[in-house]
Design a binder for these strands. Structure first.
Length: 421
RNA sequence: GGAGAGAUGGCUGAGUGGCCGAAAGCGCCCGCCUGCUAAGUGGGUAUACUGUUAAACACGGUAUCGAGGGUUCGAAUCCCUCUCUCUCCGCCA
């Protein structure tokens, strides 16, 4: 969420900033709710103050004395008034808070203006189609693909979009995860294995509730959500805590399965590994000093990019335009790998800076140079998401004899130079 | 799942209806003192919201003793519900 004072004092700035995003949000109505809430607070507290003063007087009076009894009678009336006003205050408070939480983060000034994904800016391209095998084909068209990535049986066991990875592909997946974690650890990110179910408070803190309610799987019996990304649980690791400035930047990496309902998506876009409901991802997260956040975003992005480079995968980095960045995001880069068989770019990482938007919701602060409490800035990005990286490897490295050459950096872990065929 | 105990400020830990935002100790900060890191001594030491204000690190108010409800003129203190922690039993990968 935004800084309340800033919002109140600069509604025009906020209105203008979020108008560039695709989210609807009635600033006027929210300002109104704020005014109403403050009036309610002032009124209730004035009366409450009166009540407290009277109570202190009563404490001095002898218990059963006539004065005491008279006071009790008098106070009864005030007491019920206080109760009413407090209830009104609570109601006004709740209404305001709920509305305030629907305001998205403001895009950073370095974010290009644009209405749709068409207007994202290609920030960087690495490699070329020269690296792609002449025999490349869409991964789902490789003859042995249905055997080693068994979507049919996954559908039987769970539902569509829950693949079984088999044999050498399973091993390749595991190797990728280990490779990413090892690289991230070497870059100073401390490994974490978090819970993959979270409570609603955690989902709210990162901005997934109420924005993306329908995207998450929900365990109603216990009121838990399955995480759509490790960000959801790991960002909450330090919720309601005060960090030491000397700890910043705090860096973590986490492997988790991720669950996304992706309701309503069908067709070519979702064939094979392009979009599944459960997938594995390694995430990178940072908690940083507000002064460095955008430089820290760049270094995180560059690290994520280095992973693709080490795998030898042709990719591009998009600087997302205002109309395509997410609800809690101030700035966002997407990394897209080129799948040479499908001849499509597939998103494998999204690296974002949330400024203090999440930290405010999650109440993550640090003591700054002046000893005052301040919210940290949070940054995260995938490093990386498995299925589409896997898809690109399968497509781009397909050989004449229908096998797939394992990227060199993984060959030792996989124990083979070629798989499939 | 069953039985019992508990949850208080950065930490330890008092406090069973009013004068308790909360004793005391520790820690931390500021000052004094002492010819050197120690001891002693005086003071200070939460956060959020809100009002006054041009604005405040200024002054005032309210809230916060696990969470939510209730009783009462008044709740850290009494009652109910929930959550979590610990101990014992059962069950189980």
């Amino acid at each position: 969420m935004l800084d309340l004072k800033f919002f109140r004092e600069n509604p025009d700035v906020v209105r203008e900033a979020i108008a560039k995003k695709k989210f609807d949000c009635d600033i006027e109505a929210i300002l109104e709710l704020d005014t109403r809430r403050r009036a309610a607070v002032t009124e209730a507290e004035a009366l409450r103050s009166q009540q407290k003063a009277a109570n202190n007087e009563m404490a001095e009076l002898p218990k059963g004395s006539p004065e005491f009894l008279a006071k009790v009678k008098e106070m009864k009336e005030l007491s019920s008034k206080v109760k009413d006003l407090m209830a009104q205050q609570d109601e006004a408070d709740a209404a305001f808070k709920a509305a305030f939480l629907t305001i998205p983060n403001m895009p950073h000034e370095s974010v290009p203006f644009g209405k749709t994904e068409e207007e994202n800016v290609v920030f960087k391209t690495w490699g070329s189609t020269d690296s792609i095998s002449a025999y490349a084909k869409p991964h789902y068209d490789i003859s042995w693909f249905p055997v080693l990535v068994d979507l049919a049986r996954g559908t039987k066991v769970t539902g569509s979009g829950f693949p079984f990875f088999m044999g050498d592909v399973a091993r390749l997946v595991r190797s990728l995860l280990q490779f990413f974690l090892d690289e991230n650890t070497a870059a100073g990110y401390v490994e974490v294995m978090p819970p993959i179910l979270v409570n609603p408070e955690s989902a709210t803190a990162v901005g997934q509730l109420p924005d993306k309610e329908g995207m998450m799987y929900y365990c109603g019996q216990d009121n838990y959500y399955l995480i759509p990304t490790a960000e959801t649980s790991v960002t909450n690791l330090y919720r309601d805590e005060i960090l030491e400035m000397s700890q910043l930047p705090l860096k973590h990496t986490a492997y988790t399965p991720c669950f996304r309902r992706e309701a309503g998506s069908y067709g070519k876009e979702v064939r094979g590994l392009n979009r599944v409901h459960q997938f594995d991802k390694v995430e990178l997260l940072k908690w940083v000093h507000p002064g460095n956040s955008f430089a820290e975003l760049d270094s995180l992005r560059e690290h994520a990019e280095s992973l693709l480079e080490k795998l030898g995968l042709h990719y591009r980095t998009l600087l997302m335009c205002t109309g395509d960045i997410g609800f809690p995001h101030a700035k966002q880069f997407d990394l897209e790998v080129f799948a040479g068989g499908q001849k499509r770019w597939l998103e494998v990482s999204s690296c974002s800076c949330f400024t203090d938007f999440q930290a405010r919701r999650a109440n993550i602060r640090f003591r700054n140079e002046e000893g005052k409490l301040e919210h940290v800035h949070t940054i995260n990005g995938s490093g990386l998401a498995i299925p589409r990286v896997l898809a690109a490897i399968l497509e781009n490295n397909l050989t004449e004899d229908n096998r797939v050459r394992v990227p060199e950096v993984l060959q030792e872990r996989v124990g083979k130079e070629y798989i499939g065929g």
